[in-house]
Design a binder for these strands. Structure first.
Lengths: 243, 243
DNA sequence: ACCTGAACACCGTTCAAGT
DNA sequence: ACCTGAACACCGTTCAAGT
């Protein structure tokens, strides 16, 4: 059902006539949309503006996408497709491999902070989003962790990375509207009811902040370590499920 | 500066004349806004609809809030104010106390899933959001963890909880539009390119999913354990910063 | 098959005006 | 001090029409 008009990634019979008419492609539209977000923020993407950027009537996009929501799904796919875990080195320890994966996962998301913001509110049960998950599953199952535990692990792991990055981006866009030289710190401390948050103030007032990346890496390492610990102990206790 | 008109939480000289005119309160407006979100989703909150719910001209709200964004900040404050960590039991181990805190943190957020969605995209450097953070800091500093490490710990911890819950809510609203009897699983599996995700399919097809709450609790425990491990080792290595 | 353009029902916000 | 109501500049989307 569902009007297969919108299913195909339109390679039409236009292509072989040279590049006479670039016309409109699903991919071209999505890239333009992403570009608008990257440049001016996710909230300034409108169908009308998109049409302008593509030198086309705003409504032309509706031939290729049923609505704006579908277009945004396309943008999400494009961004999530940028996650590349192929640098994985199977000779390393599992812990190390997962840490590296977390690192590149984050890096890919940080390439398009504005677009990542919209993922907070959109479905992530999509091929490009699940490809890294499938890959991580392979690593975990390879170590003898049970199906049940691997699924839990991978869910927790992927949410950790996405959630962490999402909120890092939030903080980013909060603070770079003010003094961005001192990372995230004084900007916050100043606007805070000093007497109700004595500890926060004490802890922030002399460069205690280790930086976003270091913080992420520490968190990732701790989580991975903790999960491996827990599951490793469980498996040797012998409660494997269906192999 | 900043027009103190919008600063006070308007207790005006109206109150002592009995409840003759309830008129409009900042709090009343915010509660109404939250209610609309709870009932019909965050995206169906509009100034016009809010006015209707309050039996008032839509523009009346603009006397109490400079714009919709400020109103949403109010909603966020209301929801974050619902986080209550006072059930903390200092006689327990730190690990246990933090796990309990994570549990109630999550619980409070899950009370208003729709409103939590908007926090993904709004500043969280706000009193109600930081109050739990301040409290957690107290726990951590009390164990002798350094300032630097406590700050990192608390940042990671708070982001973990928020991010986790945020993405849990996303998944929730994705899946309850379809078959909601089997938790999160088949609904996903069906719409998935079966051949590209063999492991995901294998792992999901017989009830391997342990449930959202269990998953969260496991993740939280693993993270907390991992962080305590790392920092405990560090402190005894002697690199304390200013006490 | 692919794009246009007018039209519709909504937004958030401003501002002068009412009480 | 607090609320109203018209008006403005935007939205996303539908639909009949053009090529």
């Amino acid at each position: 059902m569902e009007s297969k008009k919108h299913q195909n990634f339109n390679r039409r019979h236009v292509r072989e006539s040279g590049s006479a008419r670039p016309s409109l492609t699903r991919e071209g539209i999505v890239r333009a949309a992403l570009k608008i977000m990257d440049e001016d923020g996710y909230e300034s993407l409108s169908m009308r503006r998109l049409g302008a950027k593509l030198n086309v009537d705003p409504m032309a996009v509706y031939y290729h996408f049923p609505n704006k929501s579908a277009l945004l799904d396309g943008v999400v796919e494009l961004v999530m497709g940028g996650i590349d875990l192929s640098c994985d080195d199977p000779t390393q320890t599992v812990e190390e491999r997962l840490c590296v994966a977390a690192h590149y996962y984050r890096e890919a998301l940080l390439a398009h902070p504005q677009a990542v913001q919209i993922t907070a509110v959109r479905s992530l049960n999509t091929p490009a989003s699940l490809r890294p998950v499938e890959y991580l599953l392979e690593i975990l199952l390879g170590t003898g962790i049970s199906h049940t535990d691997s699924l839990a692990f991978v869910n927790i792991f992927a949410r950790f990375v996405r959630g962490m990055v999402l909120l890092e981006i939030r903080q980013m866009t909060d603070t770079d509207s003010l003094a961005q030289e001192d990372c995230t710190l004084k900007s916050l401390g100043d606007s805070l009811p000093t007497d109700e948050f004595p500890l926060l103030h004490k802890v922030m007032e002399n460069g205690c902040f280790i930086g976003e990346e270091a913080e992420f890496e520490r968190g990732a390492r701790a989580l991975i370590h903790g999960l491996l610990d827990e599951f490793a102990n469980k498996e040797q206790a012998g409660d494997q499920d269906v192999k």
